[in-house]
Structure formats: structure tokens, C-alpha cells
Design a protein around this nucleic acid. Structure first.
Length: 344
DNA sequence: AATGCGGGGAC
DNA sequence: GTCCCAGCATT
């Protein structure tokens, strides 16, 4: 039997996948793409990569970008800590001379870069002989080699790693890593994988034992909570009151409106002076996150008088400039319903 | 080891 | 509805 790697690389010859971070391969583009693609489908990430590639020619430009602009560029992509860590890492790289680390450990020490991303950047940018383990690799390896431990357990992870190490091609790290991920993404898919024409089917544990649909095994279940969010959209002389979300909560570093407690109204103590009337309620709408089912209601208020406290984190923004700030995707419903758009 | 963190696509 | 996606940081 041919080696795993030669079979895999031969299969890879039969497909081609044009991806924009391969246009002009360099560590900056590779890093950018890998951060964007964490827990994100390639098709979803591509427009964001193009936007970032166009805006930032160098890591210096990224380091010097404002937090506001960066979050606006990331708006809608989710997992916003990636953007914050990208920014932190850019500053670290820039402050230390502008050169990326070129070792696995050096890469992994950067914010937002864990085992997968360090291996990906290391192999793709520098040819380091380190195998990647992502969702695709978990699936491919657990099926072909019959890893029946939960891939989300310590034992399962260790088994996957050990197995990948054994079949990894140290002579062609980048090609191997790209091929195994493409194989998982395009062929050995979560569902409807075409096992009958698979180059590994004779040796695939899952196919031979009719366990394709059961592998990889995941043990842990996520528990979801239902949560209601109520926002007061306070308008004052054509401006709208917003703030940046800075707490340990969803959508950190994005913006929102004045947040109402479950059954409460506006707390006048939050302002030096305020005089207002309710001007309608919109919603609730449902919005689903990985760990939360949200029900969001918008309460529109028109203020006749509004004086902000000193040191408050709230600020007023012209209605037509509102969308220059980054907001959660869930707010699009409100913006559309009220014709609040970003003007160019 | 467990939990939190987004949004979208496939079925 | 369920599952998964080029995972990582925090506790």
C-alpha cells in the first residue's frame, strides 16, 4: 500500500482550490487568513480577508489602526476576541521590530495563536514540520484510523495528535497540511461524504465498519441559556445615545444602546439631566448564539433634554453616522427597520 | 476540565 | 431544529 501521504497528495492533485491568501503568499497574509478562518467557513471568511488585505499592506498599518476601525472591519464575522487579539499581536510584532516569529513556540506565544494556528502559519509560511489539527483533521483521522475516543477529551486529542504525527510528511509539511484540510473540507465531509469513490476507503476504519456517520465522536454538549436583552434607543436632537461594550459579556468592544434591566426603565441617575418620552417599541426579535438564545427588544425614546454625566461612557452620535461604529449583527434588524444605513 | 465566545450554511 | 466550521483564552 502506498503511504498515507502519497495517497493524500495524489488526491490533492485532482482538486484545486483558489484562495486569495495564496495569491501572494507571505506570513502577514497567512496569519491574517488563519485568524479570520478560526471556527469560520472559508466562504464566510474570504470577503473579510479581502477587506483586510486591501486596508492593511503591512503589520505596521494594522498595529496603528484604531480599535474602532478594526472592530468595524470585523463587524458581522463573530468571535470578536479574534480581532482584539489580532490587534494586540500586530502591536507586539511591530514593537519588536516588525518581524514575525519564525518558530512554532514563538508563533504560539502571540495572542490569538494557539496550537492549530501556530502549526498552520509555521508550515505554510516557513515550511516548519508541524502538522495541523483542526476540525477537518479530526474528522479525517478519526474516521480513517478509527479513533473512537471523544475528540473533545484529553485522551482523544492525544490519540489524534499521535496518529497525525505518524502519517505526517516531514518532507512536505505545507503540502500535507493543505491537502488533509482540503480533503476534510471537500471530500471527507461531516455529512454526505462520497465514501465509495474515496482513495482511502479500502483502509478506512469508519467506512469498513459503517461508522462514518458516528465519527468523529463528540462527548460534550453545550448548554444554551435563554436571555432577554432590552435596549433604549434614546434620540436627542438627531443624535442617538450609544456606548461601547466593555464588560465580560458577548460582543465585547462592539457598541450598543442604553441597556435596560429586565423590567426597568431608564435610570435617570445615569444622566446629569434627562427628559424623555417613549416613542414606540420594536421587537422582540430572536437571535441565536452558540451559548445563548437571545430575545432582543428595542425601546425608542425621544429626549427633549439630555445632559451627559462627566466621565460617562455614553456618547451621542449623529443618526447618519451611527453605522460608522461596529454593532452586533443582531442589530441589523433594527437598523434596516428604521432605515439607518452607512452612507459612503 | 469546563466554559464562553458569533454567525452562517448544510441538512 | 441539529451539527459544524482553517480554535483560543480564561477560569
Amino acid at each position: 500500500m502506498a503511504s498515507f501521504s502519497s495517497t493524500l497528495l495524489s488526491w490533492h492533485e485532482t482538486i484545486q482550490r483558489e484562495l486569495p491568501w495564496k495569491d501572494n503568499p507571505n506570513v502577514f497574509h497567512i496569519w491574517l487568513s488563519e485568524i479570520i478562518l478560526q471556527q469560520t467557513r472559508v466562504e464566510q471568511g474570504i470577503p473579510y480577508f479581502l477587506k483586510f488585505r486591501n486596508r492593511f499592506k503591512t503589520v505596521k498599518e494594522l498595529a496603528e489602526c484604531s480599535d474602532e476601525e478594526l472592530m468595524k472591519l470585523w463587524e458581522g464575522l463573530g468571535y470578536y476576541s479574534r480581532a482584539r487579539n489580532l490587534h494586540k499581536a500586530a502591536k507586539l510584532i511591530h514593537d519588536s521590530g516588525g518581524n514575525f516569529p519564525d518558530t512554532y513556540e514563538g508563533l504560539k506565544a502571540l495572542p490569538g495563536i494557539g496550537p492549530y494556528t501556530a502549526a498552520a502559519i509555521g508550515s505554510f509560511a516557513y515550511g516548519l514540520p508541524v502538522p495541523v489539527v483542526d476540525g477537518n483533521v479530526n474528522r479525517v483521522i478519526s474516521r480513517i484510523f478509527g479513533i473512537r475516543e471523544g475528540i473533545d477529551t484529553k485522551e482523544g486529542k492525544a490519540l489524534i495528535e499521535k496518529t497525525v504525527e505518524q502519517v505526517f510528511d516531514k518532507e512536505k509539511p505545507a503540502a500535507f497540511n493543505q491537502a488533509i484540510m482540503d480533503f476534510g473540507a471537500l471530500f471527507c465531509k461531516p455529512k454526505n461524504s462520497d465514501c465509495n469513490s474515496c482513495v482511502f476507503n479500502d483502509d478506512c476504519y469508519a467506512f469498513q465498519n459503517e461508522m462514518v456517520s458516528e465519527l468523529p465522536l463528540k462527548v460534550k454538549k453545550i448548554k444554551k441559556v435563554n436571555r432577554s436583552l432590552n435596549f433604549a434607543v434614546i434620540s436627542y436632537r438627531g443624535k442617538i445615545l450609544i456606548k461601547k461594550r466593555i464588560g465580560k459579556d458577548i460582543w465585547r468592544h462592539l457598541h450598543d444602546f442604553y441597556e435596560l434591566t429586565a423590567d426597568g426603565g431608564i435610570n435617570e441617575e445615569d444622566f446629569s439631566a434627562i427628559d424623555y418620552k417613549l416613542d414606540g417599541i420594536q421587537g422582540p426579535i430572536k437571535h441565536v448564539l452558540t451559548h445563548q438564545n437571545l430575545s432582543i427588544t428595542f425601546h425608542n425614546y425621544e429626549a427633549q433634554k439630555l445632559i451627559l454625566k462627566n466621565g460617562t461612557s455614553y456618547f451621542l452620535v449623529e443618526r447618519e453616522n451611527l453605522r460608522k461604529f461596529a454593532f452586533p449583527k443582531a442589530f441589523d434588524w433594527y437598523f434596516d427597520k428604521n432605515s439607518i444605513y452607512l452612507k459612503y
